[in-house]
Amino acid sequence: ETFPLDVLVNTAAEDLPRGVDPSRKENFLSDEDFKAVFGMTRSAFANLPLWKQQNLKKEKGLF
């Protein structure tokens, strides 16, 4: 299941849709939104070091 970017960005855990893991908001973006937000594919993002993934998520309001 995916959700629009505005539902996930800068949203407190208690305000997220049911079933969304607040530590993994990026997994609930569509592939198109994911690429638009991070400028890379999911596989490229997954290959980044964890610290870099976290920094990007913070920068984009998805942490």
Rank of each mutant, 00 (worst) to 15 (best):
E1K: 14
E1M: 15
E1F: 15
T2I: 11
T2D: 03
T2F: 15
T2M: 07
T2R: 07
T2E: 04
F3P: 02
F3K: 03
F3Q: 05
F3D: 02
F3W: 14
P4F: 03
P4S: 08
P4D: 07
P4L: 05
L5E: 02
L5R: 04
L5T: 04
L5C: 06
D6I: 09
V7S: 08
V7F: 15
V7D: 06
V7A: 11
V7R: 08
V7N: 05
V7G: 05
L8V: 04
L8D: 03
L8W: 01
L8Y: 02
L8T: 04
V9A: 10
V9E: 05
V9Y: 06
V9P: 02
V9I: 14
N10Q: 09
N10R: 02
N10G: 09
T11K: 08
T11A: 11
T11E: 06
A12E: 08
A12D: 09
A12L: 10
A12K: 13
A12F: 06
A13P: 15
A13Y: 08
A13I: 14
A13M: 10
A13R: 09
E14L: 08
E14P: 09
E14D: 13
E14Y: 02
E14V: 09
E14N: 08
D15N: 07
D15W: 05
D15E: 11
L16S: 04
L16Q: 06
L16R: 02
L16N: 05
L16T: 06
L16H: 05
P17V: 02
R18G: 15
R18W: 15
R18N: 15
R18Q: 15
R18I: 15
R18P: 15
G19K: 07
G19Y: 07
G19M: 08
V20K: 04
V20G: 03
V20Q: 05
D21N: 06
D21P: 02
D21C: 07
D21Q: 05
D21K: 03
D21L: 02
P22Q: 06
P22F: 02
P22K: 06
P22T: 06
P22R: 02
P22V: 07
S23Q: 13
S23E: 15
S23A: 13
S23P: 04
R24F: 14
R24D: 04
R24V: 08
R24W: 07
R24T: 07
K25W: 05
K25V: 15
K25F: 04
E26P: 02
E26G: 01
E26N: 02
E26C: 04
E26M: 01
E26I: 02
E26R: 00
N27P: 02
N27A: 14
N27G: 07
N27L: 12
N27V: 09
N27Q: 15
N27I: 08
N27W: 10
F28H: 14
F28S: 13
F28G: 04
L29A: 01
L29G: 01
L29V: 03
L29P: 02
L29Q: 01
S30C: 06
S30K: 06
S30A: 07
S30I: 05
D31A: 11
D31I: 07
D31W: 02
D31E: 12
E32Q: 12
E32I: 11
E32P: 09
E32N: 09
E32S: 11
D33C: 05
D33L: 04
D33R: 01
D33I: 05
F34H: 01
F34P: 00
F34I: 02
F34T: 00
F34M: 01
F34C: 01
F34Y: 02
F34A: 00
F34L: 02
K35H: 15
K35L: 14
K35A: 14
K35G: 12
K35V: 12
A36W: 13
A36T: 12
A36H: 12
A36Y: 13
A36I: 11
V37W: 02
V37N: 04
V37T: 11
V37S: 04
V37Q: 04
V37H: 06
V37A: 10
F38M: 07
F38K: 00
F38C: 01
F38N: 00
F38D: 00
F38E: 00
G39M: 11
G39T: 05
G39F: 09
G39H: 13
M40V: 06
M40F: 04
M40E: 00
M40T: 03
M40G: 00
T41L: 10
T41G: 10
T41M: 10
T41E: 14
R42E: 02
S43R: 11
S43C: 12
S43D: 14
S43M: 11
S43N: 13
A44Y: 10
A44M: 11
A44N: 10
A44F: 10
A44V: 14
A44H: 12
A44C: 12
A44R: 09
A44G: 08
F45N: 00
F45Y: 07
F45A: 00
F45Q: 00
A46L: 11
A46M: 14
A46T: 11
N47A: 14
N47C: 14
N47R: 12
L48F: 05
L48S: 01
P49L: 02
P49C: 05
P49Y: 01
P49G: 03
L50P: 13
L50W: 14
L50G: 12
W51F: 10
W51S: 11
W51L: 10
W51V: 11
K52M: 14
K52S: 13
K52V: 12
K52G: 06
K52I: 12
Q53M: 04
Q53R: 11
Q53N: 00
Q53T: 01
Q54A: 12
Q54T: 14
Q54C: 10
Q54W: 13
N55H: 13
N55V: 11
N55Y: 12
N55I: 12
N55R: 09
N55G: 13
N55Q: 13
N55M: 14
L56F: 06
L56E: 06
L56P: 00
K57W: 06
K57L: 08
K57Q: 02
K57V: 06
K57H: 01
K58C: 11
K58E: 11
K58I: 15
K58P: 01
K58N: 08
E59I: 13
E59F: 06
E59M: 10
E59T: 08
E59C: 08
E59R: 10
K60G: 06
K60R: 09
K60L: 10
K60M: 09
K60S: 08
K60N: 14
K60F: 09
K60P: 01
K60Q: 10
G61C: 08
G61M: 05
G61S: 04
G61A: 03
G61F: 05
L62N: 03
L62A: 02
L62S: 02
L62R: 02
L62I: 05
L62P: 03
L62F: 07
L62M: 06
F63A: 15
F63D: 15
F63P: 03
F63K: 05
F63M: 13
